[in-house]
């Protein structure tokens, strides 16, 4: 393996308890992501159900979505997925400064995505056809799903900020960095959810 052995300290001693605890946490975290995914899936089901309930789509009198803008915003989010990936890789290879730079870039891009979303919401709510949470089944499903996703991004940004502070304080070492792995997994998960949301709201 190219990476330093998981759980080994500077002298190459392997901390068996850490290794196994990490494995438990990893598995538990993946299961958490699965159940989170079910939560999204249920709302996606609700959206598709309402959309196909024979009332015509899009419902009349709503603001149309700005697909081009959302596409650029998606690029920002996917870009942050790439920077996060490089952050983890650099940490594994011991390039601490590079890791920090990529991590900060991820935070900036994540926050940028949220800004874009705020702009988009603003456009819908105060646009020419007022479209908001309570105004019909489009608003209900759109704002609930993208809002839930936005909340996930927001929590992710907060968590990554904590990672920056922890890393600066030297919490993570070459062999022990489960916090970073979990953050990366979570961030990719949020990306993948966005792929689905983008396709079902903007593309179909």
């Amino acid at each position: 393996m190219s990476v330093a052995a998981i759980g080994a300290d500077a002298h190459g001693h392997v901390d068996q308890l850490y290794v196994e605890t990490r494995e438990l946490r990893l598995q538990g975290f993946l299961l958490f992501l699965i159940s989170d995914c079910v939560l999204f899936s249920s709302f996606i089901f609700a959206y598709l159900y309402l959309r196909n309930s024979g009332q015509g789509w899009p419902p009349p009198g709503i603001q149309r979505l700005d697909v081009a803008f959302a596409a650029w915003n998606s690029v920002v989010l996917f870009g942050s997925g790439a920077t996060m990936h490089y952050a983890l890789e650099n940490f594994k290879h011991g390039n601490f400064m590079k890791y920090m730079r990529f991590l900060l870039a991820t935070i900036v891009l994540g926050a940028g995505f949220l800004g874009g979303q705020a702009y988009e919401y603003n456009h819908l709510i105060f646009g020419e056809h007022v479209t908001w949470w309570g105004s019909g089944i489009f608003g209900a499903s759109f704002f609930t799903l993208t809002g839930m996703h936005g909340l996930h991004v927001f929590l992710g940004v907060c968590y990554l900020t904590v990672l920056v502070l922890q890393s600066a304080a030297g919490v993570y070492t070459k062999g022990k960095f489960f916090g970073i792995t979990a953050g990366t997994l979570y961030w990719h998960f949020v990306d993948v959810i966005w792929v689905v949301l983008f396709s079902i709201f903007y593309l179909i």
């Binding site: 159940s35 989170d36 079910v38 939560l39 899936s41 249920s42 709302f43 609700a46 309402l50 309930s53 009332q55 419902p59 949470w133 309570g134 019909g136 089944i137 608003g139 209900a140 499903s141 704002f143 609930t144």
Partner: peptide, 26 residues
């Protein structure tokens, strides 16, 4: 977790009038 979604939807529909289940609002 699937139930959690249904409960959340019912809750926000009741509290904030967001239409998921009310047939008069689609």
């Amino acid at each position: 977790t699937a139930l959690a979604a249904a409960l959340a939807a019912l809750f926000i529909e009741r509290q904030f009038g967001v239409p998921f289940f009310d047939p008069t609002k689609g």
